Deep mutational scan, measured.
Amino acid sequence: MAEAPPRRLGLGPPPGDAPRAELVALTAVQSEQGEAGGGGSPRRLGLLGSPLPPGAPLPGPGSGSGSACGQRSSAAHKRYRRLQNWVYNVLERPRGWAFVYHVFIFLLVFSCLVLSVLSTIQEHQELANECLLILEFVMIVVFGLEYIVRVWSAGCCCRYRGWQGRFRFARKPFCVIDFIVFVASVAVIAAGTQGNIFATSALRSMRFLQILRMVRMDRRGGTWKLLGSVVYAHSKELITAWYIGFLVLIFASFLVYLAEKDANSDFSSYADSLWWGTITLTTIGYGDKTPHTWLGRVLAAGFALLGISFFALPAGILGSGFALKVQEQHRQKHFEKRRMPAANLIQAAWRLYSTDMSRAYLTATWYYYDSILPSFRELALLFEHVQRARNGGLRPLEVRRAPVPDGAPSRYPPVATCHRPGSTSFCPGESSRMGIKDRIRMGSSQRRTGPSKQHLAPPTMPTSPSSEQVGEATSPTKVQKSWSFNDRTRFRASLRLKPRTSAEDAPSEEVA
């Protein structure tokens, strides 16, 4: 009796068929016929556990003709996506030579605008209408194809895939403007070719909807975003200037109206006075309405000098805001240009540092100066060695804690006790272990408590650290204090090793 083939788990290929790579489910599931010992083939499952149809090819690079078809379809799909992405970037994010197409579109729109203006002049109306009709045909074809291509290429973005995504893309403001202008152009052409009475009025009214094509030149909205950011950044200043200017306008108009309503027919109503105030304070000055009385002229002159300053403030605020924003954008561009080279330089330096163990090129690091100058660790070890030599091999803490019996001779020589300023008595072995921070803190506390006492003391002649007598400086308080830590004499004296002298005989010792 033939044995059933062993159940295979995992992703390994079956024996005897090495080139074939078959994806098997996580659990080997066989058909009921196979479990019962029949000759049925096992049921194939996909990666998600769903059964595959009987005629479906197995996924994998070596699955025969199905694999070749899959490779061809995958390559075609990649080319399709690449083309779609390229078209989308050309239309929505132009760079380099892609601006040539947008310059061509701008020339078409500008020519249409010029011809629309010439069509309103009686001398050039006939020729402009003929040229404009031909140009409209060209623009309908160009913009119609462009609109379709834009909607198709938007599928390269995830949020615009599918018919719902394309509809979302078509609802964008600039796409809506394109659609309105396209419909208006078709209506103008249809009305112009019919030759009816309505054609002339339709051409004159709907052609100027094509002015909206100038708005579509900035599809990404960079200028509007820049203007919005400047207004938002200086909103408080703008609101303040406009508010005060509006108050000056209504008060000036009302007072001039009261002064001129009886003697001047131009100011017969408050609305006429508001019109005069707006034209005057905005420095336009049509001259259609002028005050005639001396009181009205004085009020107009005073409020004009006051109001023009507030009406001119928004222009200066926006101008300075634009300058600052442009400078910030230039700085951001320079930062973006330098970020990648800086990151590459840091990575290269780290690779060199991690692979080169000698690091002989590091001549400006802490390790280099640590090898030249005595390190703080060596100074600490030197302090501890000196203290243990004086205390008979014991550390200062051990000397303080060691009990001394009554009447027993002390094995240590008597030492002079010292007192730290602002604290109780402490171990004499710690007097010379006072660090730089303690010395600086002690000097600052003395300056806070009594700076007036220092200038009363007789001035001391500054001497070099080499000429100081070591026996005289029994305490860190003898170090000359200065008002600034930048004094080199104080810094050098604080680094010197001060020996400890006994109370009975204080021989001067120098520590090399």
Rank of each mutant, 00 (worst) to 15 (best):
S320Y: 01
M217L: 13
A18G: 10
H102Q: 08
N129K: 07
V326F: 06
V141G: 15
E22G: 03
P15R: 09
H234D: 01
Y147S: 03
A271V: 03
A312V: 00
D17V: 08
V141A: 10
Q33H: 05
H330Q: 02
G40D: 05
L318Q: 00
V230A: 03
R297S: 01
I317T: 04
L305V: 05
G96A: 12
S320A: 00
T278K: 01
M1T: 04
G195V: 05
L313V: 06
S73Y: 10
G222C: 02
L58P: 15
R8G: 14
A300S: 08
F143L: 12
L45F: 14
L295V: 04
F311L: 05
D218G: 04
F251Y: 06
K325T: 15
V230G: 00
K261M: 02
I317S: 01
V186M: 08
M340R: 10
A4T: 05
E22V: 06
T293A: 00
L305I: 04
M139V: 15
F335L: 11
R159G: 15
R95S: 13
C175R: 08
G192V: 02
S65W: 10
F167Y: 10
R8L: 12
E32D: 07
D272H: 02
M206K: 02
A323G: 12
A312T: 03
S67P: 12
G10R: 09
P6L: 04
A233S: 05
D178A: 08
P19T: 04
A300V: 02
G319V: 01
R213G: 03
T293I: 00
A304S: 03
R72G: 05
T282P: 00
A199D: 02
C156Y: 15
C69G: 04
Y257C: 01
W86R: 03
E32V: 08
P15T: 15
F137I: 06
P57L: 14
G155R: 01
L127R: 03
T278M: 05
E336A: 02
V248G: 02
E22K: 06
Q30H: 07
M214T: 07
S111G: 04
S235C: 04
G296A: 01
G165S: 00
P51H: 06
R166P: 01
R331Q: 00
A36E: 08
L227R: 00
Q210P: 15
S41P: 05
L318I: 01
P15A: 15
H334R: 00
W86L: 07
Q327L: 01
P13L: 07
A241D: 05
R72H: 05
G192C: 03
Q210L: 14
K261E: 03
G70V: 05
L212Q: 08
S309P: 13
G221V: 02
R207H: 03
F106S: 07
L226R: 00
L299M: 13
Y88D: 01
L209R: 02
G12R: 04
A252D: 02
K172M: 15
W97L: 14
I180N: 00
P61Q: 04
S74L: 15
E336K: 01
R219P: 15
R339K: 10
L132V: 14
F143C: 05
P14A: 06
A154D: 00
A98G: 04
H330Y: 03
Q84H: 01
G49C: 08
G192R: 10
P173S: 07
I239M: 05
I250V: 08
R43P: 07
E123K: 03
A154G: 02
G307D: 00
I189L: 02
T240I: 03
F310V: 15
Q33P: 04
E123A: 03
G70S: 09
G96V: 02
R150Q: 02
R220H: 12
I121S: 06
I134S: 04
S31N: 09
P94A: 02
K78E: 15
M1R: 02
L108Q: 04
A154T: 02
G96C: 01
L227P: 00
I250N: 00
R44C: 07
A304P: 00
D262N: 10
H102R: 03
S273T: 02
F99C: 12
H102L: 02
E92V: 03
F167I: 04
N196Y: 04
H102N: 08
A28T: 06
E92K: 01
N264D: 03
L313M: 07
N344I: 02
Q71E: 11
G162R: 02
E92A: 01
I346V: 03
Q347E: 08
A76G: 09
I177S: 14
V142G: 13
Q84E: 07
S265A: 14
A241S: 12
I189T: 07
R150W: 03
L281S: 00
A18P: 09
G16V: 08
Y270N: 00
S67F: 14
G12C: 03
V256F: 00
L281W: 01
S253F: 01
L212R: 02
R166G: 03
L118Q: 07
R95P: 02
G245R: 01
R95G: 04
F254S: 04
P61A: 05
A301S: 11
P51L: 11
S201P: 07
G245A: 15
E126Q: 10
A233T: 14
N264T: 02
R95C: 10
V141E: 03
T293S: 00
G62D: 13
E126G: 04
L306P: 01
K289N: 01
S74A: 10
T278S: 03
F303I: 01
R168H: 15
P314A: 00
L255M: 06
V141L: 11
S235G: 02
Q332P: 00
S268F: 02
A323S: 15
F179I: 01
P291R: 00
P13A: 08
R171G: 05
E3V: 08
R44G: 08
W294R: 03
S74T: 08
V90L: 03
F182L: 06
A184P: 03
P19A: 10
E35Q: 10
Y147C: 05
K261T: 09
L345I: 08
D178E: 15
W276G: 01
V176I: 06
V183E: 02
N85D: 15
R219H: 03
V188A: 06
V103I: 10
H330D: 08
H77Q: 07
A343G: 08
Q194P: 03
P51A: 09
P15S: 13
Q327R: 15
A323V: 02
R72S: 03
F311V: 03
G70C: 10
F167V: 13
F251S: 10
S269A: 01
I197F: 10
G222D: 03
V231D: 00
W275R: 00
T282S: 03
Y243S: 01
R8S: 07
I189F: 04
L238M: 08
Q33R: 11
I134N: 10
A315P: 09
M217T: 03
P57A: 15
A2G: 07
S235T: 02
K289R: 02
N196T: 05
V151G: 02
S229T: 02
P42T: 12
L203P: 07
Y80D: 11
D262V: 01
A21G: 03
A323D: 00
E22D: 08
G285R: 00
G285D: 00
G222V: 01
Y270F: 07
A154S: 11
M340L: 05
T200M: 03
P15H: 08
K225N: 13
V181G: 07
F106L: 09
D272G: 01
R331W: 00
L23P: 13
S73C: 13
H334N: 00
Y147F: 13
L127H: 11
P42A: 04
K261R: 02
P53A: 14
L115Q: 10
S153Y: 00
S50G: 06
E260A: 01
G195D: 04
Y101D: 01
F110S: 09
A4G: 05
W163G: 02
G60V: 04
L238V: 02
E136G: 15
P42S: 06
P51S: 13
L107M: 06
A342V: 00
W152G: 01
A271D: 00
N89S: 13
A233G: 10
F174V: 15
I177N: 06
V298L: 12
T120I: 03
S265Y: 04
L113Q: 12
A199V: 07
K333Q: 02
L48R: 08
V176L: 09
P94H: 02
V24L: 09
G296D: 00
Q194E: 06
A300P: 00
L11M: 15
P42Q: 08
V215G: 14
P15L: 05
I284L: 01
F182C: 11
G221S: 03
S65A: 10
L258V: 06
G66C: 07
F322L: 09
R159H: 15
G228S: 14
F198Y: 04
F254V: 03
A191S: 11
S111I: 05
L324Q: 00
G37S: 05
A190S: 03
S229L: 08
V215A: 08
C69Y: 14
P57S: 15
A68S: 08
A199G: 08
I105L: 07
R204L: 03
K225M: 04
L247R: 01
F143S: 11
P59L: 12
S273L: 01
Q194R: 03
D17Y: 03
H330L: 09
A56V: 13
A184V: 07
M1K: 02
L91P: 00
T278R: 00
K337R: 00
L118V: 08
